[in-house]
Amino acid sequence: MNAALALLARDVKLAWREGGAVGVALGFYLVVIVITPLGLGPDLNLLGRIAPGILWVGLLLAGLLSAGRIFDNDYEDGTLDVLAAGPLPLSVVAGVKCLAHWLATGIPLVLIAPLLALLLNLPMGSVPSLMLAMLAGTPAVSFLAGIGASLTLGLRRSGLLLALLVVPLYVPVLIFGVSAVTPYVTGPNSLWPPFLILCALSLASMVLAPLASAAAIRNALR
């Protein structure tokens, strides 16, 4: 337990102190949100209607972009070998590192989402449900990205490949994430069913994804 907590603290610290790990993800999110109205035109009504979708897509892309760092640095400098030989089971190591990615990158992305929602004219009333849905869904984003990151360890062009592998797995998160917010935009409906499904997706991926990641890391270290 102590070892897992130490690893978690180390990873979160590294993500914040190592130049630009979190900042780049936030900047990327901002850029995606800024170029979308430029492509669609400045019609505020249209933007307000599609804002939940754009905010979610931007979040997924920013999460993906930063996911390569979950294991890559530790793989290159040999830390991952040490961790694999250490007392913690490798699946716990993988899970803790994905959790650190969620804490260090996922939560800041969720926190700036309301600011970006302002740019897209999302109705103020739906901001709480947007944040709630994103908080519930982002663990799945981090843990699924961890599978892609561990499968592409040490490969050339791993960033692009990671996106190709993981984006199909994001389909459910995106659909339920957007539908948790859309009722407030298009009409009265309930937030809870999609919200609870998002929680289920996150919990299931927190349990299952580390197993797959651990198998992939062991395969890469062999």
Partner: peptide
């Protein structure tokens, strides 16, 4: 093989959500 199994678990979920 790992990716294929992850996908196999996900296909029903994707189907359901779509």
């Amino acid at each position: 093989a790992i990716l294929a199994l992850v996908g196999a678990i996900n296909i029903p979920i994707i189907k359901f959500s779509v």
